[in-house]
C-alpha cells in the first residue's frame, strides 16, 4: 500500500447526513454508488438534496461502473501543508468516472513519480478503521 497513516492521529470522519447517507452506506459495503435524479436521470456527485438540472427532490442511488481516468492530481510533499494523520509524500487525485461524474480520492498503488493525467484507474475499497472505509483507486489495464 502506497499511503501510510500516522498512528495515533485520527483521520477526519465524513459527516453523514440525510442527503449523503446512501453514498457513505454504500462505501461501507464496498459499493461505489452515485446519486441519480429519478425524474430527469442526471447523475450527481457529490450528493445534493435537489437535482440541479430539473429541481426534483426525488433521488435514487445507482451503482457506478467503478472505472475512470485521473483528471488531475497533487502530491503532498511538505508535512506542514499536509494532513497530519498521513505520512508525506502522498497523492490525491480527482478521478473522472466513466459514469460521467468526478470524485476526489487517493491512489492505492501508484507512487508519485508514476502518476499522470489520463491514467486509467478503477476503484478499490480501503478499510482504514472499523468506522472508516474509503474508496480509493488503482491502476487499470486497458
Amino acid at each position: 500500500m502506497v499511503m501510510e497513516y500516522n498512528p495515533g492521529i485520527q483521520l477526519l470522519r465524513p459527516r453523514v447526513d440525510f442527503d449523503n447517507q446512501g453514498y457513505w452506506d454504500g462505501i461501507k459495503q464496498h459499493k461505489l454508488i452515485f446519486q441519480k435524479c429519478k425524474y430527469c436521470g442526471l447523475l450527481i456527485h457529490r450528493p445534493r438534496p435537489m437535482c440541479p438540472r430539473c429541481n426534483s427532490m426525488d433521488m435514487e442511488w445507482v451503482p457506478s461502473m467503478g472505472k475512470g481516468t485521473v483528471y488531475s492530481w497533487v502530491n503532498f510533499v511538505y508535512a506542514n501543508a499536509a494532513y497530519p494523520g498521513i505520512k508525506v509524500p502522498y497523492l490525491v487525485v480527482v478521478v473522472e468516472m466513466l459514469d460521467g461524474v468526478r470524485i476526489v480520492s487517493n491512489m492505492y498503488d501508484v507512487p508519485p513519480d508514476e502518476i499522470y493525467v489520463g491514467m486509467p484507474v478503477e476503484v478499490v475499497f480501503d478499510d482504514i478503521a472499523d468506522d472508516l472505509t474509503l474508496p480509493k483507486f488503482k491502476r487499470r489495464e486497458v
Binding site: 477526519l12 470522519r13 465524513p14 453523514v16 457529490r46 499536509a82 494532513y83 476526489v104
Partner: peptide, 17 residues
C-alpha cells in the same frame, strides 16, 4: 473527529486538507 460539514467529508479523509 467528524468533518465540520458534509463538504469536507469528500476531501479531508483523503488528505486533501
Amino acid at each position: 473527529m467528524i468533518a465540520p460539514n458534509d463538504h469536507y467529508g469528500y476531501l479531508m479523509p483523503f488528505g486533501l486538507a
